[in-house]
Design a protein around this nucleic acid. Structure first.
Lengths: 226, 226
DNA sequence: CGACTGTTTGACTTGGTTCAATGTACGTGG
DNA sequence: CCACGTACATTGAACCAAGTCAAACAGTCG
């Protein structure tokens, strides 16, 4: 099994196992506030003993679960402020992998009793992550492939700040396979949905991983903005 | 739209809107520790302004989300100790409905700052609910119909206490439609899955809402006990 | 320029949905 | 006590959205 780098986070320097080519610079520079981790690095493994709760300070992390036969579900996409490393019992419930170069801050579980501010922050964040999971469950359980992909793209590009710069394009730091595992589809179906959204003029595909939303209203209608 | 009884919870007596026939006794007896609510009562509505966090003290509650066209997803099943009434922004993210007669305790959001013990309890519970949602996402995104139903049944009947009384039967306080909305299927598919599990001898159906697990190992294998 | 990795598209198959009866438990009132 | 009505569950047959298998295409790197 691939080695997670959990043990090296927050201690000294962090080397890492990576997928494909090496993206980011060298090992961690900041010993205390957190650890810099390159893209495509496994941070922890489902089933390993749960010791610490981790915070994404910068970057993007995905949480995944596996079925014994290898089917994979990306259960959550995390950004700055989000927490991971949750345990059911004493083992991690999910594996965690960076999507982009990230800064990760570990929190000892024992610190929660002592640090009320951290506990309050964690509470707010858990509430928000729980709401996001509810929306994700609705998408997985009841939306069509096209609707799920619209939902996904809106999630990546939340709102154009009021009166702010017009919709730029988003860089999608995930492969079609990863998006499919997030949405409960196959990569082919995701690809077809992208093409269909493009054909309908709701979206422009600059590159495979560079998307621009052209018709936000229609996208929201597709994604079931209640 | 149906009226939620939120406003009457924790105040005086609680009448309620109900589905089908009236099940439970009269209005609430205990004014302070919580409110007794009969089965099939809507406790709060998705989209309503979020004021309080609620705790299930006794009974069973389901959280649901709707798509504009009426498709429904049961996003969470709650039992004693679980919390609901979460907000994305300032509105409830889900509707909540009792499955059985229940005792519900409201907590003012402001109380979290003052009551550290409550905050700690809430934190632990949110962590556990988040883990459950992760497992649910795996089921919704990657499991077949049969696997999802096995997963659901195991969830209702967690573990036979070590050395404790042999597997009794569980009463399922949900219709096939509600189970389907929980598992992202149709009621017909859920029904066929029950029949198939019975045909394979993994399960015995005493009545439509009374199930006994006959072969826990096979059920766990189906549900992907990792 | 290849070689590689990931994406798109096409043709075919299939698990689950849809539509349509039929079956079954339960409560009510004659 | 039994006939009837209602609500829910089961089963069957036809259909379709998404999956599977397979091939061609497009960037990127050495």
């Amino acid at each position: 099994m691939r080695q997670a780098i959990e043990d090296r986070i927050g201690t000294s320097h962090g080397t890492s196992t990576m997928r494909g080519s090496i993206h980011a610079g060298g090992p961690a520079e900041h010993p205390v506030p957190g650890t810099r981790v390159p893209a495509h690095t496994t941070l922890l493994h489902e089933g390993d003993p749960a010791r610490r709760i981790m915070e994404v300070a910068e970057g993007a992390v995905m949480l995944t679960k596996l079925l014994p036969d290898g089917r994979r579900q990306v259960v959550e996409l995390l950004g700055p402020g989000d927490m991971f490393g949750l345990a059911c019992g004493d083992a991690y419930a999910c594996s965690a992998e960076t999507l982009t170069a990230s800064l990760v801050v570990p929190h000892e579980r024992g610190a929660l009793e002592r640090d009320a501010a951290l506990a309050a922050r964690l509470l707010r964040r858990f509430e928000s992550q729980l709401c996001t999971m509810h929306a994700h469950a609705l998408a997985l359980g009841r939306m069509s492939a096209l609707e799920r992909v619209a939902f996904f793209l809106l999630r990546l590009m939340p709102e154009p700040a009021p009166g702010a710069p017009r919709d730029g394009s988003v860089h999608i730091a995930m492969t079609r396979q990863e998006i499919a595992d997030f949405l409960g589809l196959t990569l082919e179906t995701v690809s077809r949905a992208f093409s269909e959204l493009k054909r309908r003029g709701l979206v422009a595909l600059l590159r495979a991983d560079e998307v621009r939303i052209r018709d936000r209203g229609s996208m929201q209608r597709l994604a079931g903005a209640a």
